[in-house]
Design a binder for these strands. Structure first.
Length: 423
RNA sequence: GGAGAGAUGGCUGAGUGGUUGAAGGCGCCCGCCUCGAAAGCGGGUAGGGGUUUACGCCCCUCGCGAGUUCGAAUCUCGCUCUCUCCGCCA
């Protein structure tokens, strides 16, 4: 959520930022509502002040056994006026918040301006895509023939975009989860979290999925629960409504979770294979930092995610997303794209975002620099480290052999119970 | 699911319908003392909003939401959460 005071004091800056994201317009409406609200607020507060003063006077008079009927009657009228104005102010606040909750974050200065992924900027590449001396197969063909995954059974028990992992396919999934968690905990200093997969609506508002993207979420019933689309939601919200001490920052969490996405609006895209599923596994990195540290911590977070791909020896590139391609809450975002030989392209496998204070303002996560200092909003960041299903797809495709078997990346062999080849 | 207890500031813990945004304690900050520290002593210490060049002033907030009242932390109703016992359960 954007700071209403920033909009009030620097409307041109906000307009320019929103324009880069193709989300302009509503600033003027917001300014008008804000002015109207403050106008009515001043009036109702003056009346409340009067009521408070007179009420104390009534108390004094009563204890002195003096009649106060006139004052009491006068206050009854004032109360009616207060009730009315309070309603006006509340309505205005609701409309202001409705708008504020649906405005995206402002892009940072160094984010390339553009409408979509065409304007993304490749930052660096790592690794050399293998050259194959035989005909490549996509991961879904290889995996099915090796009995690693079963798409038909997934469809039978759940429906489209669900997959059953079996045997060494299931084992590979589990190996990757453990490998990534160990790496980030032991080498990168993150604290492991195993969060609930169902959260309250308040959490979804806090990280920005609600109210705008309700149609992308699975809702659980009975109860008012949402299935998490990413561990970002429960983990970032761990500190909702808290004021942290400065020494605790930066906070670095790593969490495995299943992720659930409705994929509304992506019908027909990536219908085959593991790339786009309603349910997938992911190891997520989350950081809470001081504002001045978030840019540096963002770069480090990207490197921590890259390390996974490097250790798996999977070629990838880092892309800086354009203003139009970024997620709603992000102020700056790098995607990690892994090489998928069968389609001959780089595909997103991690998205690493700095949200500035956008989420912290929604979730009310603050910190104090000094024991007596005013609370300030923290900055929140997160990134996949990595999406497990897409990593499996990348391994299967990049490590495929002429005979249709898969060589297990060396670093994973211990996690695979010594299995070096899936055949 | 049944029965009961509770929710107050960073923490703990008082609170009779009327200068109680809230005693006391702990913690923290500033000062005194000290070579330095501890102890001791004195003072300070919630958040949000509005307004003001500023000092300041005002409004709201005692889990959340309604209500009663001139006035609610305190009374009434609803909700949420936590704890204890019983039942069920991986």
């Amino acid at each position: 959520m954007l700071d209403l005071k920033l909009i009030r004091n620097n409307p041109d800056q906000v307009r320019a930022g929103l324009n880069k994201r193709g989300a302009a317009a509503l600033v003027d409406e917001l300014l008008r509502l804000d002015e109207e609200r403050r106008d009515n607020l001043a009036r109702v507060e003056a009346l409340k002040n009067k009521r408070n003063v007179v009420s104390k006077e009534v108390g004094r008079l009563k204890s002195a056994k003096v009649d106060a009927t006139n004052l009491i009657n006068e206050m009854k009228e004032v109360n009616e006026e207060i009730r009315q104005l309070d309603g006006v102010v509340r309505d205005l606040e609701e409309r202001i918040n409705e708008i504020l909750y649906t405005l995206p974050n402002l892009p940072q200065e160094d984010v390339p301006v553009g409408a979509d992924e065409q304007a993304n900027v490749e930052v660096r590449r790592w690794g050399e895509p293998r050259t194959f001396s035989f005909t490549l197969k996509p991961h879904w063909e290889l995996g099915e023939s090796l009995n690693m995954f079963d798409f038909e059974q997934g469809a039978k028990i759940s429906g489209a975009r669900f997959t059953v992992l079996k045997g060494l396919g299931a084992r590979l999934e589990r190996a990757l989860v453990n490998f990534m968690l160990d790496l980030h905990v032991n080498e990168h200093g993150y604290t492991e979290i195993f969060p609930p997969f169902l959260v309250s609506g308040a959490c979804m508002v806090g990280t920005g999925q609600l109210p705008k993207f309700a149609e992308d979420m699975f809702k659980a019933s009975p109860g008012d629960y949402y299935l998490i689309p990413t561990a970002e939601v429960p983990v970032t919200n761990l500190h909702r409504e808290e004021i942290l001490t400065a020494e605790r920052l930066p906070i670095k969490y790593v969490a495995y979770s299943a992720c659930f996405r409705a994929e509304a609006g992506s019908a027909g895209r990536d219908t085959r294979g593991l790339i786009r599923q309603h349910q997938f596994n992911k190891v997520e990195l989350v950081k809470l930092t001081k504002p001045e540290d978030s840019a540096r911590e963002h770069e480090r977070l990207v490197q921590d995610a890259e390390k996974v791909l490097q250790l798996l020896n999977l070629p990838y590139r880092v892309v800086l997303l354009s203003s139009g391609d970024m997620g709603f809450a992000a102020s700056k975002c790098y995607d990690l794209e892994v090489w998928l030989p069968s389609s001959g392209q780089y595909r997103e496998i991690s998205s690493c975002s700095n949200f500035g204070e956008f989420q912290a303002r929604r979730a009310n996560i603050r910190f104090r620099r000094e024991p007596d200092a005013k609370p300030e909003f923290v900055h929140t960041l997160n990134g996949s480290g990595l999406a497990i299903g897409r990593t499996v797809a990348a391994i299967v495709e990049n490590y495929q052999q002429a005979d249709g078997s898969i060589v297990v990346p060396e670093i994973l062999v211990p996690y695979m119970g010594g299995v070096k080849t899936i055949k």
